[in-house]
């Protein structure tokens, strides 16, 4: 259960890391190859978050209805459907699968 004290510590840590990243890098200090490496970081992070939120539960690998939802999302992306349709259909597919299972 969250407390006010914990909340303040969490906020300080989260904002501190964002601020550190925001103030520690500048285009003047970075050379070409490192700018390209930085540009790939969102790709790596997005892929990691998708994998973890789809295939793990409380730190352990687990396959369940979420896989169906994310597969549906990928199908919608492949068909180039709007982003709102992607997330809505993914939720509906997951909910339907849970209902069936």
């Amino acid at each position: 259960m969250l407390t006010w004290g914990a909340l303040l510590f969490i906020a300080a840590g989260v904002y501190g890391q964002r601020l550190l990243g925001m103030t520690s890098s500048s285009s003047k200090r970075l050379s070409g190859p490192w700018i390209i490496v930085l540009s790939y970081i969102p790709v790596a992070i997005l892929a990691a978050v998708i994998a973890l939120q789809t295939l793990t539960h409380q730190g352990e690998l687990q396959i369940d209805a979420r896989v169906v939802g994310i597969t549906a999302a990928a199908f919608c992306c492949w068909r180039q459907w709007p982003m709102a349709a992607v997330v809505t259909i993914a939720a509906l597919a997951t909910a339907s699968t849970r209902l069936i299972l």
């Binding site: 790939y40 992070i45 998708i50 994310i70 990928a74 992306c77 992607v86 997330v87 993914a90």
Partner: peptide
Amino acid sequence: GLDVMFPALFVALLWRQLDHGLSKLVGLAG
């Protein structure tokens, strides 16, 4: 199915960045 909306949004964000081999490699490796 609300828990899937977050990763589904990320799939949509990531999809348009996987346009060449190296992007796909980084995504898969990540």
